[in-house]
Amino acid sequence: MPPNAQPHADPASAARAPEPLARDGLAYVVEHGPSFATLRVELPAERTLFVQAGRLMRLEPGVEVRPALNAAVPGPPGLWAKLVALFVTLLRVAFGGDPPIADRVRTARGGRVWLAPASPGSIGHRRLHGDALFVNADAYLAHAGRVEVRVRFGNVQRALSRVAVVFFELSGFGEAWFASHGGVQRIDVRGTFLVEPHHLLAFDGALTFHIRPDAGPAAPAGAAGRVCELRGRGRAYVQGRAGAAVVAALARRDQGAA
């Protein structure tokens, strides 16, 4: 299923009934799409929804919210993995990025929650049936079910960088929602395709990715002169805007002023 089946449609989505979903699925509605999409999830009793910290917009009375560590690192689970996850968390906090911490949302009797992404854009949904999807950590919005979330930050070098691109690898059985910054272009990769890393919204687990230097000696500040090389056969989703590019465009307003 494509992450966003209605790129520029649907002004009347606010009035739509929730998507009917298969057993175990959560009913949801994307409202105000595509420019400023929000997500409404109908949460049945005793079900848990993990939401990226800071993305809750509205709750119905009776809905409980607790913080939880949302992401694990590759490798066997255990104390070491927890420590590494904590380290990554602290790093992301220190750098002002969103830490891999989620709000764990539950209700005793059922209730609705409304989520709003941080960036202007649309919301996509993906049902996982044992496959994997890589999602830009800034774009991750929520998940439910037996979905495992692993941080793919490449290596320590990239994790330390202020302009680091972090991907979440979502795998297992359940559903996940993610939000684009701007619109979404679907690219069917056959061979190799190059994407500025912050504009890479998501890609199939079937594709391999590799971040390498790009553009010769002069590095654009947004990506620090790097490009993401996707290889194989599969689908990639490219977002039209990126937070890092917004920051770089605002930061270069300093030049010449000093």
Binding site: G191, F193, A218, P220, E229, A245
Partner: peptide, 9 residues
């Protein structure tokens, strides 16, 4: 430089 989003290899 900030406008280059994606391209063929």
């Amino acid at each position: 430089p900030l406008a280059v989003v994606a391209r063929e290899s």
